[in-house]
Amino acid sequence: MKNIQIQVVFYSMYGHVYQMAEAIAAGVNEIEGAEALLLQVPELMSEEALKAAGATKARQAFAHIPVANPQQLAEADAIIFGTPTRFGNMCGQMRNFLDQTGKLWLEGKLIGKVGSVFTSTATQHGGQETTITSFHTTLLHHGMVIVGVPYSEQGLLKMDEVTGGTPYGASTLAAGDGSRQPSENELTLARAQGRRVAEIALKLCR
């Protein structure tokens, strides 16, 4: 039987969301019958602006990842979206991408598919939960079945270190200058999210 396709669609500026996307894809691929496809949404900033923001070098790490077309979402059995936080909301690049899915909405192409979200913030209280839950609004309009990370994942209960991770979806902390990289706990939760989405999508598809 053909594997189900789970798209991991992300935007990353400094590489933190990309690292989380790789972990999520690894989790998906651990589940027999599921296969992850990594895609990135188009960039809206100019090369000059990216260079001024110090993002040019970091972006080389995922330059090989194909750029997604909004209509491509219809081919997936589940979609896991990744976005950095911008003032408690998804980034403009992701919003612009989703705003091009009107035709999919009119045709009901995403109804019944699993949808899930992960994120990155600069600080502990920088909007991880609001970014994910506000993103869910768009998924609900598309009729998607939302999946998060349950508290059976012990990493959500860690109190002995600074860490991201929410029941709404995996998350990481990047620090204001982007110097902090995803921790092992954050990556473990990301892999768990990928596995959970794959498991539920398989149940829905078969």
Rank of each mutant, 00 (worst) to 15 (best):
L173N: 03
T121C: 03
A175Y: 08
H142I: 08
A78G: 11
V147Y: 06
T172A: 15
S120L: 06
E153C: 15
M159A: 14
T131P: 00
D177W: 09
V145P: 02
F97C: 10
P84W: 01
Q93G: 12
R95P: 03
G88A: 05
D77F: 14
D177Q: 07
F118Q: 05
E161W: 11
T85N: 01
T101G: 13
T85C: 01
E153M: 14
F97W: 07
M94W: 00
F87H: 07
Q93H: 13
I111E: 08
V147T: 03
Q124K: 11
L173A: 02
I132Y: 03
K158F: 13
D177G: 11
L157W: 06
L104M: 13
Q128N: 03
H141I: 03
F118K: 02
A76L: 08
A78E: 07
L156E: 06
G92F: 06
Y151M: 12
N89I: 06
Y151T: 08
F97L: 11
P167Y: 13
A175H: 04
A175P: 00
Q154W: 09
M94Q: 03
Q124P: 04
P167C: 14
D77G: 14
S171T: 03
T101C: 15
V162M: 12
T130E: 01
T130A: 00
G102R: 07
D177Y: 10
G115D: 06
S152R: 08
G108L: 02
A76E: 07
N96Q: 12
T85V: 01
H141F: 05
T131A: 00
G148M: 11
G164N: 02
D177F: 13
K113F: 13
A174T: 10
G143M: 05
V114P: 02
T121A: 01
R95Y: 07
E153I: 11
E107H: 14
D99H: 12
T166N: 08
I79L: 13
T130N: 03
R86L: 07
I111Q: 10
K109W: 12
G143I: 04
P150D: 14
K113R: 12
L104S: 07
V149H: 05
F81R: 00
A76C: 10
T172K: 06
L110H: 09
L140W: 05
G115E: 07
G155I: 10
F135Y: 00
T131G: 01
M94E: 02
G165S: 12
W105L: 03
F87L: 12
L139Q: 01
E75C: 13
A122N: 00
F81G: 01
T101K: 04
P84V: 05
V147S: 07
